[in-house]
Design a protein around this nucleic acid. Structure first.
Lengths: 145, 145
DNA sequence: CACTATCATGTGTATATACAACTATTAAGG
DNA sequence: CCTTAATAGTTGTATATACACATGATAGTG
């Protein structure tokens, strides 16, 4: 009894564990709500590019907190699908959405509405917004070092 | 200006995005604090086995919210390292820590203290505990469906 | 102007994790 | 008892993501 309590506490109060598990589970929700071919992360990348046409890959990686190698891989795939365009100038590459990229983005924005509605219906609207904001802020503190 | 605001809102209020990013970043903290060979998840698995010797693989997967195939892979690795033992009875397999598994677990418990202290120093003690608990509860709602 | 340091991106490789399909075992209904 | 259904675990394969290193481009100092 004592033991079980201790175990539960350890699992409940370890942020690494609770955060990873929550992220895994919420990914499934997102996958379901977004009906495109690609994993959700690709659409978030396109979202950032939509708001910053010509953004460099480095800044893109920073905004998404992705390792540079990861953004290279993502962009390779999106480029192959004709959704983004790379313009290499010197050592930097500047990214823009192609017209079909913009289309895909528009569809994604629709899916996002569904997704937000799903969060709200499961966790409550206020609660899910608050949690998301808290995670956002906690992440900033982590990255600040 | 309007646009930038809209972008930030979208990134900040999307639980999928904030949760995944936070999980990625906090994994790095955990990796640093835990000085064993293995990734943090393996130690959490051992923790559960420590408190439930002879647990079936199915229940183990459920407690950790891992897909069965994932637990198979984890156990393969841990078995090869001599840290756990599988006893197959009929269609179920029962898991226990070996003595070196218990040792590894004990070291892990030490590392956990460091890790918790790191969370606390970056996010604040109260705040990190609260966030972890909130994630735990939100996850339960997700799994309840 | 040449040389070196710094920086942006790409490549090789590794890992956690998942799903779908498969195998093997037990349980249930006629 | 036999057949069928359900269940537990495994295997093939795919993907997101990372780190360490390689490569190529720029910038800054002598």
């Amino acid at each position: 009894m004592e033991r079980i309590q201790e175990e539960d506490d350890l699992l409940m109060y370890c942020l690494y564990f609770t955060a990873s598990r929550f992220a895994r589970n919420i990914s499934k929700l997102a996958d379901d709500a977004i009906d495109g071919e690609l994993a959700p992360s690709y659409y978030y990348l396109m979202l950032v590019v939509h708001f910053h046409p010509g953004i460099t890959q480095k800044e893109l990686s920073e905004r998404l907190s992705l390792a540079p190698s990861t953004s290279t891989r993502f962009l390779d795939k999106l480029e192959k699908l004709g959704l983004i365009q790379r313009d290499v100038i010197g050592k930097q590459s500047h990214i823009t959405l192609t017209s079909s990229g913009e289309e895909a983005y528009t569809e994604f924005r629709q899916s996002l509405k569904t997704l937000f509605a799903n969060y709200a219906s499961i966790l409550g609207k206020e609660e899910s917004e608050l949690l998301s904001k808290t995670l956002h802020e906690a992440n900033e503190q982590l990255e600040k070092k």
